[in-house]
């Protein structure tokens, strides 16, 4: 069995989504990439223990993200770096495939959601996870996961339509 191809496939399929998820909490792209690296390596070394590897991958990502945030909080670096953070927030989260105005408006609408709602949307839309998997990955009840998604889509739709009307 070609193990290298195996982890390459996993990384190609989930790496961008992991990065997108982590960047909801960490503004610096370099920091977010470090977190994704560490989380992915941890996942790969312990994936045999997982019942659902796909959900477990995002469990690893969220767990290491929280660990990293706690460490950063202790260092007190976040306040110092806030000025830099504001600058790096402008780094795009999505590929600029076209100049379509719809994409820009959707990105703004997505940014207007709460972080918790965005997490669920990211795992559902880009991660392709089912609600039980999202519930496991984010350590939240199943009903909470599905209701967050419902509210998020309703907000997105509303904001998207409103933006369209204003323009």
């Amino acid at each position: 069995m070609d193990k290298t191809a195996d982890w390459n496939t996993w990384l190609a399929e989930h790496g961008p989504t992991m990065l997108l998820l982590v960047r909801q909490w960490v503004a610096h792209r370099a920091d977010a990439e470090d977190i994704v690296q560490e989380a992915f390596v941890r996942f790969w070394k312990s994936r045999h223990r997982a019942v659902d590897p796909k959900a477990y991958l995002y469990v690893c990502a969220k767990r290491y993200l929280l660990e990293w945030l706690r460490t950063e909080q202790r260092r007190g670096r976040r306040e110092q770096d806030s000025a830099i953070d504001r600058a790096s927030i402008s780094t795009p989260l999505f590929k600029q495939l076209s100049d379509r105005e719809d994409h820009r408006r959707l990105e703004i609408s997505l940014g207007a959601l709460s972080t918790e709602q965005r997490e669920v949307v990211i795992l559902r839309i880009w991660g392709g996870l089912s609600f039980p998997q999202i519930s496991e990955a984010l350590a939240i009840p199943l009903n909470t996961a599905s209701s967050r998604y419902r509210y998020a889509l309703a907000t997105l739709r509303k904001n998207f339509v409103e933006e369209s009307i204003h323009e």
Binding site: G15, P16, L19, E33, V36, K95, H103, L110, I125, L153
Partner: peptide, 18 residues
């Protein structure tokens, strides 16, 4: 709406990270 969101592809990991 889901299709539109899905069409926005997240940025890939950098080569250095890979």
């Amino acid at each position: 709406l889901e299709a539109q969101l899905r069409s926005m592809l997240p940025i890939d990991l950098s080569t250095d990270s890979q």
